[in-house]
Every structure is written in C-alpha cells, then in structure tokens.
C-alpha cells in the first residue's frame, strides 16, 4: 500500500474514495479505527437504553389486568380480558396463506400453528404478561397482551358517530 495516497485523499475531504482516479484506496479503510469503536459504543448505548426502557415498561405493566389484543393487517379482531378465557379457547384466523391458530386460556396466549414460512410466531412461545407479543409478518398478524386500561375509557374523539 503506497503511503502517499492516504495523504492525497485526506487533503481533499469532499472526494469519495473512488474519485482518486488511478490511485489506491487509503489504507485507513482497512484498519479498525477510532471511529468504528465510537460507532459501536454508540449503537450499544442506544440499544441498551431501548432494552432497559422496554424492560421497565414491561415490569410496570405486568401489574395491570392483562388483555389480549389480536390485530390482522392493522384492524383489531380481538380485544378481551385474558380472564374471560377460563376454558381453553381455540381462535382460528383465516389468512391468505392458510390458517393461524391461537390458543387462549386464563393465564397465557400462544400461537399454536401458523401457515407461514418462517414459523417465528410459533417459536415465540407463550405470552403471559402485558407487553408480551408475537408477530407473524407473512400473515400480518400481531398477538399482544396489553394492560387493560391502556387505551380504553376515551370514547370521545375516538369516533365520529355512534350507531345505536
């Protein structure tokens, strides 16, 4: 690696590497540098804050009444207290790919089977506390446990009219 290339490139900050026509790339591109360390630390800190925030939120929510909310392509198809399922209930959702089977009982919810290629939603396992959720992207289904009072109680402004 000729060393003078590095100089020629650092002198012209605006130029992108490839513009040094006929010249070699500066060696700085190949060596682990201070900027990399900084970037990695920044990302770690960012993720750390997010994860801590989520854990704290989950902890505070876990004391509230759990509600099951199932969303298909953005529209809510189930919104019920988990305690309503004293008997184990099977909820089947027909989708473009086939069928998704959700099992509900009074203390947990899980996706038993799903006609989707990745099966990530099935592997997510059992959902027990508010904040838990399972997502099936190919079927656009989100199964969530939410804290009961999180978004109820404000009927005004939510709708334009009420049919009765």
């Amino acid at each position: 690696m000729p060393k003078k290339d590095g100089q020629s490139n650092t002198s012209d900050k605006l130029s992108t590497p490839h513009q040094a026509c006929g010249q070699h790339l500066p060696p700085r591109h190949f060596r682990f540098a201070s900027g990399d360390v900084f970037l990695i630390i920044a990302i770690l800190v960012f993720c750390g804050i997010l994860i801590t925030g989520m854990l704290v939120r989950r902890h505070t929510l876990s004391k509230k009444t759990p509600y099951v909310r199932i969303t298909v392509d953005g529209s809510v198809v189930m919104n019920r207290a988990l305690s309503a399922f004293a008997d184990e209930t099977e909820y089947r959702l027909a989708t473009e790919n086939g069928e998704v089977v959700v099992i509900l009982n009074d203390h947990e919810v899980y996706i038993q089977s799903s006609d989707c290629p990745d099966q990530i939603c099935v592997q997510t396992g059992k959902l027990t506390k508010p904040g838990d959720g399972a997502i099936c992207l190919p079927n656009k289904i989100v199964v969530q446990i939410v804290a009961g009072s999180s978004d109820s109680g404000e009927t005004d402004g939510k709708v334009d009219a009420v049919a009765k």
Partner: peptide, 19 residues
C-alpha cells in the same frame, strides 16, 4: 455518510449499514 469519515473503516461502514 460513514465511508467519507476519516476515522471510520470498512468495519464501521458495514456495521452502521447493518444497523
């Protein structure tokens, strides 16, 4: 953005891109 930085190598660019 990253590949223009002086102190960022291919490592940083790749990691930042992936993130």
């Amino acid at each position: 953005l990253l590949c223009e930085r002086k102190h960022v190598s291919i490592f940083g660019t790749s990691i930042g891109g992936a993130a």
